[in-house]
C-alpha cells in the first residue's frame, strides 16, 4: 500500500465578524431585540387598554393599582430570576410568601409593631431560603424536589398558624403605607420598594462578582467548579436571596391587604417563573435578565387589569396567559436558532 502525500492544509482560524457596526453597538448593548420586543408588547397592551376602556384604564388610580399589584409578584420574580439564571428553580416562593405573611401578622408578632412585622417577614423568608439552599447545595437534592417539599410544608405550617382565619393587621403605621397619603409624587411606597429591589437586583446580576458567579454556575456548573468557584456556596446564597425576596414581598402583601392569610401567594411560583421566562431568562440557566423579568411581570399584570376592566372572567385570563407564554417561548427559540 502506498502512502500518498497530501497537500498541506490551510489553517482556517476564521475570524468571526464582530457583529453590528459601531454606531449600533451602544444602543444594541443597552436594549437588545428581546427587551425592545417586550416593550413593544407592553405598548400594544396599553393601546388596547386605552381603546377598550379609555376612561378607566388610563386613569391615574388604575395605573397606580396596576403597578402596586405588580410590586408583590415583581419582587418575588427578581429573586426567581437569580435562581433560574443559576440553573435552578424555586417552586416554594408562593408558600414562603404565605408563611411569612401569616407569621408576621400573628397577635404575638403584632405586639412588636411595624419593625416586628417587617423583621419577622424577612426572617421567615430567609429561614425558608436557608433550608432550600442547604438541601440543594449540600444535601444534593434536585431543586425541583427540595422546593416542592418546601411548598407543601410551608403551606401546611401557614395553615396551622392561622387555622384558616384571616389575621387582620392593627398597626396603623403599617396600614398607612398603603394609603393614598403615603404616595410620594403619586408613586405608592410599595411601587418604590419594587423599583429599589429591581435596581439592586439588576446591579447585583450585572455588575458584581455574585452575579457573575450566578451566571457561571447556571451556564456550566462543572466549568465554574474547575475555574475555582465555590458552586455549592453560591447555590446556598441564591436560595437565600430568593427567600429574602419572598419575605419582602410578604411584607408588601401585608401592607396591601391589611392582613395575613394562609392562602396568600397562591400560584406565585408559576407567575414568577412565567414572567422570568417570557422576559428572556433561560430556564436551563446561564442567561438571566432582570429587565426582561420586570417587563414580563408588567405585561401579565396589565393583561389581568385589562381583562378585569372589560369584565372578562379569570378563566379567559388564564388561557390568555398560557397562550402568551407559549408564543413568547416559540419566538425566543426562533431568534435563538437564527443567531
Amino acid at each position: 500500500m502506498t502512502q500518498h502525500a497530501s497537500p498541506p492544509r490551510d489553517s482556517t482560524d476564521k475570524v468571526p465578524s464582530t457583529g453590528a457596526p459601531p454606531a449600533w453597538r451602544g444602543l444594541m448593548a443597552r436594549a437588545d431585540v428581546r427587551t425592545l420586543s417586550l416593550l413593544g408588547v407592553l405598548a400594544v397592551l396599553i393601546i388596547i387598554g386605552g381603546i377598550t376602556k379609555p376612561d378607566e384604564f388610563l386613569d391615574t388610580r388604575n395605573l397606580q393599582l396596576v403597578l402596586t399589584q405588580a410590586s408583590v409578584i415583581g419582587v418575588v420574580t427578581v429573586g426567581m430570576t437569580f435562581v433560574i439564571t443559576s440553573g435552578g428553580i424555586d417552586l416554594s416562593v408562593g408558600a414562603i410568601v404565605a408563611l411569612a405573611s401569616v407569621w408576621a401578622t400573628t397577635v404575638a408578632t403584632q405586639e412588636y409593631g411595624f419593625g416586628g412585622i417587617l423583621f419577622t417577614a424577612v426572617l421567615v423568608g430567609l429561614g425558608c431560603g436557608l433550608v432550600n439552599g442547604l438541601l440543594i447545595a449540600y444535601g444534593g437534592m434536585v431543586p425541583f424536589i427540595a422546593t416542592l417539599a418546601m411548598l407543601a410544608s410551608a403551606r401546611g405550617l401557614a395553615l396551622q398558624i392561622t387555622d384558616g382565619k384571616t389575621q387582620i393587621v392593627t398597626i396603623p403605621s403599617v396600614l398607612d403605607l398603603g394609603e393614598r397619603d403615603a404616595y410620594v409624587l403619586g408613586v405608592p411606597p410599595l411601587v418604590m420598594v419594587f423599583a429599589v429591589v429591581t435596581i439592586i437586583g439588576w446591579l447585583i446580576l450585572n455588575r458584581t462578582t455574585f452575579g457573575r458567579r450566578t451566571v457561571a454556575v447556571g451556564g456550566n456548573a462543572e466549568a465554574a467548579r474547575l475555574a475555582g468557584i465555590d458552586v455549592r456556596r453560591q447555590r446556598l446564597y441564591l436560595y437565600l436571596l430568593s427567600g429574602l425576596c419572598c419575605g419582602v414581598a410578604a411584607f408588601l402583601l401585608i401592607v396591601l391587604a391589611g392582613s395575613g392569610q394562609n392562602t396568600n401567594g397562591n400560584l406565585y411560583e408559576l407567575d414568577a417563573i412565567a414572567a422570568a421566562i417570557i422576559g428572556g431568562t433561560l430556564l436551563s440557566g446561564g442567561r438571566g435578565t432582570i429587565t426582561g423579568s420586570v417587563l414580563g411581570v408588567l405585561i401579565f399584570t396589565t393583561i389581568t387589569n385589562i381583562f378585569a376592566l372589560n369584565n372578562l372572567q379569570s378563566d379567559v385570563q388564564q388561557i390568555a396567559k398560557g397562550a402568551i407564554i407559549v408564543a413568547a417561548v416559540l419566538v425566543q427559540r426562533r431568534t435563538a436558532s437564527t443567531t
Binding site: R212, R213, A216, N220, A223, A224, A227
Partner: peptide, 24 residues
C-alpha cells in the same frame, strides 16, 4: 466546552472568571 468554557459568555468573562477578586 463541557469543563472549561462558559459558552454563552464573552471571551472577557471566560478569561476573568477565575480572577474576579482582582477586578472587584
Amino acid at each position: 466546552k463541557a469543563q472549561a468554557l462558559l459558552m454563552l459568555e464573552s471571551v472577557t468573562r471566560n478569561v476573568s472568571v477565575s480572577s474576579m477578586s482582582r477586578f472587584s
